[in-house]
Measured scan of single mutants.
Amino acid sequence: NKASVVANQLIPINTALTLIMMKAEVVTPMGIPAEEIPKLVGMQVNRAVPLGTTLMPDMVKNYE
Rank of each mutant, 00 (worst) to 15 (best):
A3R: 02
V60Y: 02
S4Q: 03
V27P: 03
N8R: 14
K23L: 12
I11N: 00
Q44S: 09
P29K: 11
L55F: 14
T53S: 14
L17Y: 00
T15M: 07
V60M: 09
V6F: 03
K39E: 03
V49N: 01
M30R: 02
A7P: 01
M30Q: 10
V41D: 10
T28V: 07
M43V: 13
N1R: 02
E64G: 14
V27L: 10
I32W: 02
P57E: 09
V45G: 01
K2E: 15
A16E: 09
D58E: 07
T28N: 13
L51E: 08
A16D: 06
M56N: 08
M22F: 10
I20H: 12
M56Y: 06
V45C: 07
K23P: 01
K23E: 05
K2S: 15
I20F: 08
M56P: 01
A16V: 09
T54G: 04
T15R: 07
T18S: 10
P12L: 12
N46F: 08
G52R: 06
V27W: 03
Q44A: 04
M22R: 00
A16W: 05
V26W: 05
A7M: 10
K2W: 15
I32F: 02
M22C: 11
L51N: 10
M43S: 11
L40C: 05
I11D: 00
M21V: 06
L55I: 10
N1Q: 14
L19S: 13
R47V: 12
A16T: 08
L10Y: 11
K2G: 15
P50I: 12
L10R: 10
K39V: 07
N62L: 08
N8A: 09
N14W: 06
K61Y: 09
Y63P: 03
M30G: 05
P33K: 07
M22T: 04
A34F: 15
K61L: 10
Q9V: 08
M59D: 07
M30H: 15
Q9G: 13
E35D: 06
T15N: 10
V49P: 01
E25M: 06
P29W: 15
E35Q: 03
I32E: 00
D58P: 09
E35T: 06
V27T: 07
M22N: 00
Y63E: 03
L10A: 13
E64V: 12
A3W: 02
P38H: 14
I13E: 12
K23Y: 10
E25I: 04
V27A: 14
E35L: 05
L55Y: 01
A48H: 09
P38K: 12
L51C: 13
N46Q: 13
G52L: 13
T18V: 07
A34M: 06
M56V: 07
N46A: 11
V45P: 05
G42S: 14
L10M: 09
A7R: 00
L17A: 01
M21K: 03
V6N: 04
I11H: 01
G42E: 10
T15V: 12
P50K: 11
V45H: 00
L40A: 01
A48R: 12
Q44Y: 12
Q9A: 07
V26D: 15
E25G: 09
P33C: 15
P57G: 14
A3N: 04
V60G: 01
S4D: 00
K23H: 14
T53F: 09
V60R: 00
P29A: 08
T54P: 05
G52N: 12
M21R: 04
P38I: 06
M43E: 03
N8T: 15
M43A: 11
L17F: 03
V41F: 09
T18W: 03
A48D: 11
T54M: 05
V26S: 15
P33G: 14
V6M: 14
A24N: 08
T53A: 11
V5P: 02
A48F: 05
N1E: 15
T54H: 03
L19D: 13
P38A: 13
E35R: 02
P38G: 11
N8P: 03
E25L: 04
G31A: 05
N14I: 05
M43H: 10
A34I: 07
L51G: 13
P50A: 08
R47F: 13
T28M: 13
V26Y: 05
V60S: 01
Y63R: 03
N62Q: 08
M59K: 02
T28Y: 04
S4K: 02
A48Y: 06
V27S: 10
N1V: 15
A24K: 04
T28C: 15
M22K: 00
G31W: 02
S4C: 10
A7Q: 01
M43F: 14
L17P: 01
K2M: 15
N46W: 11
V5G: 05
A24W: 12
N62P: 03
P57S: 13
L17K: 00
G42T: 03
M56K: 09
D58Y: 09
I32C: 06
G31H: 02
N1S: 14
Q44W: 05
E64M: 09
N46D: 14
V45Q: 01
Y63S: 05
E36F: 08
V41K: 07
T54R: 10
V41H: 10
V49S: 02
T28F: 08
T53H: 11
A34G: 15
I13A: 13
I20K: 07
I37V: 04
E35W: 03
K39W: 04
M43K: 12
E36N: 12
V45S: 06
M59V: 07
N1C: 15
A24E: 14
A7S: 05
Y63C: 14
P57K: 12
M30P: 11
T53N: 11
I37E: 06
A3M: 05
Q44F: 06
L40D: 00
T28Q: 08
T28P: 02
D58H: 07
M56T: 12
Q44P: 15
T53P: 00
P12S: 07
S4E: 00
P29R: 02
A16F: 05
V6A: 03
A16M: 09
M21H: 10
M43Y: 03
I11F: 01
V6I: 14
P38T: 12
K61A: 10
E35Y: 04
I13G: 14
M56D: 10
Q44L: 12
T54V: 08
G31C: 07
I37D: 00
N46V: 13
A3I: 04
V6T: 10
I13S: 13
T15E: 10
P33E: 13
M43D: 09
P50R: 04
V60N: 00
M59R: 02
L51R: 08
T15S: 05
M22I: 11
Q44R: 06
V27N: 10
M21F: 08
N8I: 10
N14F: 11
A34T: 06
G31N: 01
I11V: 13
L40G: 00
Q9P: 00
Q9K: 07
G52D: 15
A3Q: 04
A7G: 08
P38Q: 06
N1W: 05
